[in-house]
Nucleic acid binder design. Structure first.
Lengths: 107, 107
DNA sequence: AACAGGCATAGCTCATCGGCTATGTGGATG
DNA sequence: CATCCACATAGCCGATGAGCTATGCCTGTT
């Protein structure tokens, strides 16, 4: 029973995988070969990581002849933003409640 | 050479650990015992996770007699927000929640 | 048809890590 | 001082996962 947050955090936790995603965000669509050239790991490893990124919805693949082009799907980061925002809002609301309490005690 | 993003993602990738952090965000300061009661894992495991969260700067501990109180340190999420924001900036996409969060965290 | 190139899959190894139980430490309490 | 309680630490084990090499599949080329 793993929710969307789980998948995102686990997927982005690996440095190699995150680096691949970052490159796709910065430089746009790339082939597996182009990604492998600077990844520092073997081609099968790159393919595997891209598969995991795809399963998490973070990238999309497009086949053109015998090469596969990958590109970042930024929308998949939404749950991450939501989660962070939610944590912040809870924290903020408790802070507000404390301020409220202090204000009332001041009277 | 593990940067701040690495530590944050890896720390939050574990469901049990993330659940602990979420509870501290939602419900405020808690003792180890209180956290253990609903964590679904043993007390040593909870202590260990809290130690990892602390090392990542996500929580803070306060000793009071023989119990230890833990609380969330929301500021530690900043690098996460920055990273997401950076990725998003390459897309020139609008993330209202993110902008909102940045504004609030900027005090 | 035969071959070469680009990528995916399979199968393996090794390190990491999350869980447990047992034990240590240090503050309250009688 | 003896004891109990709250928590931390130590040590072990099984599962997960990231890396590798070898190989398969498909496409384009000659």
């Amino acid at each position: 029973m793993s929710d969307a947050h789980d998948v995102l955090f686990r997927t982005l936790a690996d440095p190699t995988r995150r680096a691949l995603f970052e490159r796709l965000c910065r430089e746009g669509e790339k082939t597996v070969g182009a990604l492998t050239a600077r990844a520092g790991v073997s081609q099968p490893v790159v393919s595997k990581h891209l598969g995991i990124l795809k399963q998490a919805g973070l990238v999309r693949d497009r086949h053109e002849g015998r090469q596969t082009h990958y590109s970042a799907q930024l929308g998949a980061l939404a749950p991450l933003v939501d989660w962070t925002s939610e944590m912040a809002s809870f924290w903020q609301s408790r802070f507000d409640a404390l301020e409220d309490l202090l204000k009332r005690m001041d009277q």
